[in-house]
Structures are given as C-alpha cells and as structure tokens.
Design a protein around this nucleic acid. Sequence first.
DNA 1: TCTGGGGTCCTAGGACCC
DNA 2: TCTGGGGTCCTAGGACCC
Length: 336
Amino acid sequence: MPVVLHVDLDQFIAAVEVLRRPELAGLPVVVGGHGDPTRRGVVATASYAAREHGIRSGMPLRTAAKRCPDAVFLPADNPAYEAASARVMDVLRGLPDVVVEVLGWDEAFLGVETDDAGAFAAAVQEAVHAATALHCTVGIGDNLLRAKIATGFGKPAGTYRLTRDNWFAVMGERPTRALWGIGARTARRLADRGLHTVADLAAADPAALAADLGPRMGPYLVQLGRGIGRERVDGTPWVPRSHGRETTFPEDLEDWADVRREVAALARTVAGELAGRPARRVGVKVRFVPFTTRTRSATLPAPTRDPDVLAAAAGEVLDRFPARRAVRLVGVRAEF
DNA sequence: TCTGGGGTCCTAGGACCC
DNA sequence: TCTGGGGTCCTAGGACCC
C-alpha cells in the first residue's frame, strides 16, 4: 500500500556542528547569527542540552545567553549545512523505489509502496546514519499532513504513525495550533469563533469559515482539522519563485543615503545570484525602528539579470517609501 | 524576550479591458 | 445617463514555515 514518510533530521544544524567539533557533544550548543550573543541575532538551532535551559529557535541570542551563559555560541555556516543536507537527500534518493520531495535543509517527504512502513522507516534511519552519522525521526502517515505531524511524536530518533484510524484519538483534543499551517494568529482567530481544538475545527462549517477567513483558507482549515491533505509525494525538482537578501544592521541607519547605498549593494548581490533566471519584479523591504516593516515592489519594464538595472530599479522602489525614520533592516527580493 | 534570514502562498482592492 | 459583470494583472500586507 502507498505510504508517506516524513524524514526530519534531529537538531540538524547543531548536529552538523558537533560532527566537525566532537568535543561539543552533549554540551549546550546554540547556533545563530554571528555567534556573538551581544549582537543582534536569533537562535537557528539549539542542541538538546541547550533546550533543557529553555532555549528555543527564534529566540534572541541575548536571551539565550541569559538563560544559559555557559552555552557554546556558534555563527551560522549555511554552506556547511547545505552540503550536509545534500548528502542526506542523496541517501534518500538512493533508496529503492522511493519518491523524494525535499521540504528544507533538514526535511523531506518520501513516497513509497510498502506493507511494512515501520521496517522501511527503520531502514531509512539506518541508511542516513550510516552515510552521514546524523540521526533522524521518521513520521509515517497516509498523507503528507499526517506524516509531518507524526514526526513530532517520534522525536528524537524514533518513529510514529498517524493515519485516519488514530487521527482523532491522537489529535482531537489538542489545540488547533498543533496543526501544520496554523500559527498563533490563526489559532486566535479560530478561538474567537469558539474553535479551540482540532475536533472543533474538524466539525466546523467550511462555508462559514470561508466567509470569515477567505474562500480558500476557510475550507482548507477545516480539512486540516480532519487530517485531510495531499496523498501524493511530488518528486519533480523545485523551481524557486523568488530570491532575495536582507540585512539587519548592527546599529540602526539614521542617514537615508546609507539606506540607499545598502539597497543598491543588496540588489547587485541578488543579481549575481539569479543563476541565469531574469528577474521580472523587484521588491524592497524596510524595517524601521522600532520594528515596523514595510514593503514596496514593482514589475520591471523588461526581465533583467543586469546588476546595474536591478540596482536602479530597487532604488526607484525605495524612493516610494514615505517615512524616513531610522532603519534597522533592508532587503531586496527578485521575483521570477 | 526587544525580536535573523530565507522563502511560500493567500487575500483584497484597484486598475484596466472587453 | 451614472451604470453590469467577468477576467486578469498589479501591488501591499499578512501569515506561516524552517
């Protein structure tokens, strides 16, 4: 029978760092930003030892340092993680008769035909560990949604099965926030309508939610509550929709001329990373002090890969921003 | 708690056209 | 005179995920 597996590497970024620095094994390791907790930045990944001190992904490095002053802070080394990720994905693609859909550096869905999903999941874990020394958790499901959520119950280094047969027993009384695709904001909007649990959401009227939350979003959320989702893993290579760069400055920029210079520089960097695909639109993001974020964008007269053209276009978009308070971040994004 | 950087998709209003 | 309806593109912002 067709089975969906969700493979998720355990504390991936921290694990990659420990592999090349074995003396860090078992220590609280925090990776993120420039590796300096006195500078602006957030936690990308914390090792399990660091998590025991209450350190979580997305937390400011400053806060992490307060919770665990003895933690080892390391800068993010994206090329190293990309290389490790590529090795893992190659292992997955090398498994017999499996379709692989990559979801991120440390995650992938596997579509496979098997009558013993548990044994297959164990084989996946062994193959990944043998080739990379990395541990992973495997969620087993009858669709992508259930496989993905199952992984959370199998951590670390285990497996878990979530299907139509145990969906409501496992998930029914949990908050809607436990669903993949429902964040804090949507959970609150649902709670305002009396929908607190997964079972509440599953029993809601799709048409009523459509009127409140949008024609696609409303019905989609009810499906989420029922554990219904895509069943077919799609192995076709991903084609990026956009590519961008953004920078948070160590000190806020007070002078708009500096902002202009940074936008131009980012636009040239982005142009150099387009990999042959011309940009059709360009977007500029500005985060003003204290934290108000605004975006502007424009369709280009003609698609371009030219750094000068992209930089000029980004500059024109920047000119359309009204307020000129101090700036803590700028970003430039090219859309294809 | 004083909040990174890289993305994706959805929504809604207005422009514009037939 | 003062107004239909559908389709598509553009744009800004929101929400979410890793």
